[in-house]
């Protein structure tokens, strides 16, 4: 039974702050693998949705099911252990720790039985994957912004989490860094992981997503393939404003 349940199922989620409905009766199913982009204008509730899924916020109504298991009221660390990894828009790295230590903490956080050697191996292979092995022992505070973004990505992917929530992971990346990022996200999906990402750059969305969910004012307006979503005139009007 549990195997056949979808990876992530959001059922009638609502969350208000004061009188403002940040998320309004939102239901969504995320597939076992592939890349889903959450798009929508600022204030659409994308980051709030991430915070609800990862336990940083508790919904007013509705349920969050991970493989058929209700994780709605679990604290963030339990959601993480259930197999959900996330990044933050403002990165939230550990600035006084080195690159290696940042990723090692992530590695050990959900499994403290890992031996030092295994942690080292896992972390180093992840750092190699994101292109930061050479910067392994540098304090994170001394890295460039792009490098810091890749540390945050490494921290999220080092564990075998099935569901990755990436909050604007490509913002501020360009050229080769952006290309590397695309390639990593595609390879994660190819490994059978499911990636849910918040993204403003529509070229990135087109380039790496299997499906797109469009949010506006806390409601799910449309879902579909990138081609389908971008063909909808009314969504473009919502996204770019009517004065385009």
């Amino acid at each position: 039974m549990a195997r056949t349940a979808p990876l992530l199922e959001l059922i009638g989620l609502s969350k208000s702050f004061g009188g403002v409905k940040a998320i309004d009766d939102l239901s969504l199913v995320i597939a076992d693998s592939g890349v889903t982009s959450l798009v929508g204008p600022n204030g659409a509730g994308k980051t709030t949705l991430f915070n609800l899924i990862t336990g940083f916020l508790v919904p007013d109504r509705g349920r969050i099911m991970l493989r058929g298991r209700d994780i709605t009221r679990l604290p963030p660390y339990k959601v993480a252990r259930a197999g959900v990894a996330r990044t933050f828009q403002n990165l939230r790295l550990f600035p006084t720790l080195t690159v290696f230590e940042n990723v090692a903490v992530a590695c050990e956080a959900s499994d403290i039985t890992l031996s030092e050697k295994n942690v080292s191996k896992l972390v180093d292979s992840t750092l190699e994957r994101v292109g930061l092995l050479a910067r392994r022992d540098v304090r994170v505070a001394d890295l460039s912004f792009a490098e810091q973004k890749f540390v945050s990505l490494a921290r999220a992917i080092v564990r075998p989490a099935n569901l990755l929530l990436l909050d604007e992971p490509a913002a501020g990346l360009d050229g080769r860094a952006l290309e590397r990022f695309h390639q990593i996200v595609r390879s994660l999906a190819a490994e059978g992981r499911s990636v849910l990402l918040i993204e403003h750059n529509l070229d990135t969305v087109r380039g790496i997503s299997d499906s797109v969910a469009f949010l506006d004012q806390g409601r799910l307006i449309a879902t579909g393939t990138p081609g389908e979503i971008f063909a909808m005139e009314e969504l473009a009007a919502l996204y770019f404003g009517d004065d385009r």
Binding site: Y77, A80, A85, F94, L97, N102, A109
Partner: peptide, 14 residues
């Protein structure tokens, strides 16, 4: 890590 950012640490599973 806890001293640097508690919420980030809990998001990692600790």
């Amino acid at each position: 890590a806890l001293r640097d950012d508690e919420q980030a640490l809990s998001s990692l599973g600790r």
